[in-house]
Design a protein around this nucleic acid. Structure first.
Length: 415
DNA sequence: CGAGATTCATGTGAAGTATACCTTTAGGCTTAA
DNA sequence: AAGCCTAAAGGTATACTTCACATGAATCTCGTA
């Protein structure tokens, strides 16, 4: 959204019409009353259809208000089932109560998926420390030194620290469960304070890959978020839609269609909300006063594109170059026979053109793997018998987004 | 014809290297007594 | 003499490279029917 605003901004600037633009912008009748309500990080005052989970989680965490260490808890559920939302809701309530009563209760939330923020053991601890207002250098310290700093920080005075690790499955898949073992042992090192861990995982099978010792101590309690069904999503959309839009903005049947779209994808409420918001934005830009079903279709397309585009944009240069090579080859071969070796050759040429150092094929192989993890491509190692063995790659993004992605990549790489 | 050997291109793990950054320490310089 | 600054020394994490070995089915080889 901001990006779009900037684009519009640039255009307007070019036509030397800036003042006019702002005036129009202010005067223009918006469909929205409060757009925040539909944004993903918004926490509503009540969460429909999650009473059971809220209850359970609140029960588990409640002892913290008596300064007793709550059990560690693990939360499972697919994306958009309200895990993060529920946890945020409860932790913010708890910390408010704690503040009122002057209890040394501290919550820290870390999303473990973020690249270059919390994707290694070192960085995760550093990130938690940062949330506690202590900066730990990005590199240079031994990992156990980082732990020591962290322990001193927490143990300085008696506090009860509750760490929320979102998307922890991603991190463990990447660096192993040793990290979790260290975290659980942390309490033994602490004299004054105590730490509880709330793990959030998208992968329902996650604990299967954990060491039994880690598993038993970390998931003392477990909580599952089942996907919402279509009517539940409708409720959510109505509730939020009421707060976000002006009256009578949403046409008949839009909510239902929106819910149906989302229910198709394992009941992803986040997606449904996104859909509604973007549809609203599109309708607004079109100048209409109501959101119709046709806006939803455009919105769906746009969301899908934006999501991928954002991921692509934030990748490091070498990753972008690799992706561009994949796309080029993909187009050349009509989506057939895309293998590592050929990609590497194209990549090497592109490196030269882009004036970047060429990485080895070994590394490119790993980078391709990481794109697989990101869900941009899908890979399969196949044996071609006499002709060796290779990784077969297919794109898992819609065809329509390819030109746009290429554009972004070329821009980012000065090609 | 078919079982076993061969082959190829690359997957994959382990160990090594370069880089960027950290803390510690020792020496030199400045300052104030 | 004490205090402060700086540069060198010694150390680490991370991204990447190098090396060496593993894979696995198409193809080849050769004995057998």
């Amino acid at each position: 959204m901001i990006r779009e605003a900037c684009e519009v901004f640039k255009m307007v600037q070019k036509s030397d019409d800036l003042k006019n633009f702002f005036e129009n912008f202010m005067e223009k009748d918006s469909l929205f009353v409060d757009k925040k309500v539909l944004q993903i990080n918004y926490t509503p005052s009540k969460i429909p259809h999650r009473a059971e989970q809220i209850d359970m989680l609140a029960n588990v965490l409640a002892p913290s208000l008596k300064m007793e260490k709550p059990s560690n808890i693990f939360i499972y559920g697919k994306t958009g089932t309200g895990k993060t939302l529920t946890v945020n809701y409860i932790t913010s309530q708890l910390s408010e109560v704690a503040k009122q009563k002057n209890l040394p209760l501290v919550f820290v939330y870390v999303n473990c998926k973020l690249k270059r923020v919390a994707d290694t053991e070192y960085r995760l601890i550093a990130q938690i420390a940062k949330e506690l207002n202590t900066n730990i250098p990005a590199t240079g310290l031994p990992t156990d030194e980082v732990y020591k700093i962290f322990i001193n920080l927490v143990d300085k005075e008696k506090i009860l620290l509750i760490i929320v690790l979102d998307e922890i499955d991603q991190l463990v898949k990447k660096i192993g469960d040793n990290l979790l073992y260290n975290l659980t042992r942390l309490n033994a090192e602490l004299k004054n304070s105590e730490i509880s861990i709330v793990g959030i995982s998208n992968d329902l099978m996650f604990t299967d890959i954990l060491d039994p010792r880690v598993k038993s101590s970390l998931s003392e309690e477990e909580l599952v978020f089942a996907p919402y069904d279509a009517t539940q999503i409708q409720d959510i959309l109505r509730e939020r839609g009421k707060a976000a839009f002006k009256k009578n903005t949403i046409k008949e049947g839009v909510i239902e269609k929106c819910a149906a779209y989302a229910a198709r994808e394992h009941g992803d409420a986040r997606r449904a909300l996104d859909l509604l918001r973007v549809a609203g934005e599109l309708a607004e830009r079109k100048g209409s006063t109501q959101i119709g079903i046709e806006d939803l279709d455009y919105a769906e397309d746009k969301i899908e594109r934006d999501k991928v585009l954002d991921v692509v944009r934030t990748q490091p240069k070498q990753f972008q170059l690799t992706l561009l090579s994949i796309l080029n080859l993909y187009e050349k071969n009509n989506g057939l026979d895309v293998y590592t070796g050929d990609i590497f050759e194209i990549y090497r040429d592109l490196c030269e053109k882009a004036g970047l150092a060429t990485l080895t094929q070994r590394r490119i192989s790993d980078i391709i793997c990481e794109f697989d993890m990101l869900g941009i491509i899908h890979t399969k190692v196949i044996s071609k018998g006499r002709y060796g063995r290779s990784r077969q790659i297919c794109l898992s993004i819609p065809q329509s987004t390819i030109p746009k992605i290429k554009e972004i990549l070329k821009e980012g790489l000065n090609l």
